[in-house]
């Protein structure tokens, strides 16, 4: 549904996006990650036809965004960065304008309007000017605008920014609900969001793609992936370390505060650690297998990039 091919954008001498290639098929929710200024928003602005690429191309629903801009834009729902809105318009007037500009018939528009406001829980403020709304409501107005015409492709630039935890949960559930027959791209800083809704995540830094995989594949890149966290009595600490070192010579054992140990079993697995403890007849308070954390992976790879 979305095909991005060596997309590049220069602002003056600064290269914001550098030869980015990416394909997003139907049914996929792609988490678009990267530090601030990595080129996420610039990429989205190009794919939605707002900015013109310096080179490379992007196609949405088979329409080239440069050659066939309006056709491509007809199948995109877009929430721009910061959810801009005309402050003096009411929520309903703004949605109605977008629908009319998209050429929707009156009756279709009426239904679409109701559905979009339902999904984003905006009915209560339908007749309020947008400038009187809180940040969370404004974000949801932007979201309703993107959903209005039930597009095949959704491009959402930080859709949960400024929402409270309940609203964030609501938006994630909404994305999951409609994901099956759409291609959705969500940019975010919130890594738990990626685990919650995304089927795939890419990390970009300095305009380039530096990681691409399912959230669990990315988590596996954390050195702590598969490590064991043990809660131990300070008195037993020494015997636990001895027992594990004896059974698994290549294990890394890091103390975490005074009450816990993090054991990276190297080539062995967590069950080997458990077996070693069993064999030495040590009972510990807590035994947790860590799955790796996306934010650790994110920090590791984006900071390595910085140093290069």
């Amino acid at each position: 549904m979305i095909e991005i091919d060596s997309l590049t954008k220069d602002f003056g001498g600064f290269r914001a996006v550098d030869g980015l290639s990416l394909t997003v098929p139907r049914g996929e929710v792609l988490g678009f990650l990267g530090p601030n200024g990595a080129g996420k928003s610039t990429t989205m602005k190009m794919v939605t036809g707002f900015l013109r690429p310096t080179s490379g191309s992007a196609a949405v629903c088979g329409y080239d965004i440069q050659q066939d801009r309006l056709a491509a834009q007809r199948c995109i729902g877009y929430l721009p960065e910061g959810a801009p809105a005309w402050p003096e318009m009411t929520v309903e007037a703004m949605l109605r304008f977008a629908g009319t500009a998209r050429g929707m018939e009156k009756s279709t528009l009426g239904n679409a309007l109701g559905q979009a406001m339902d999904r984003t829980e905006l009915a209560a403020v339908a007749h309020q000017p947008i400038e009187t709304l809180s940040k969370g409501f404004r974000r949801r107005v932007g979201l309703a605008l993107a959903l209005l015409h039930n597009p095949d492709v959704l491009i959402l630039d930080e859709p949960t920014d400024g929402l409270d935890p309940n609203q964030k949960h609501g938006v994630r559930r909404l994305i999951a609900d409609i994901a099956a027959d759409k291609a959705i791209v969500v940019s975010t800083h919130i890594l738990e969001e990626v685990e919650a809704v995304c089927t795939r995540a890419v990390i970009i830094d300095q305009g380039r793609l530096i990681a691409d995989g399912t959230p669990s594949e990315l988590e596996a890149r954390d050195p702590l992936h598969g490590a064991v966290r043990l809660t131990v009595d300070p008195g037993e600490r020494g015997s636990v370390i001895d027992a594990i070192s004896a059974a698994i010579p290549d294990a890394f054992i890091d103390p975490e505060g005074t009450g816990a140990l993090i054991i990276r079993p190297g080539a062995h697995s967590a069950s080997d650690v458990a077996a070693a403890l069993d064999k030495a007849n040590i009972r510990t308070g807590g035994f947790t297998v860590l799955s790796g954390r996306l934010d650790a992976v994110f920090r590791t790879i984006t900071q390595t990039e910085d140093r290069q």
């Binding site: 939605t48 707002f50 801009r69 834009q73 877009y78 721009p80 910061g82 005309w86 998209r102």
Partner: peptide, 14 residues
Amino acid sequence: RAGTIELLLTLPIG
């Protein structure tokens, strides 16, 4: 200034 130009130009209107 308000960024609404991005809304306007990403609607399918010339």
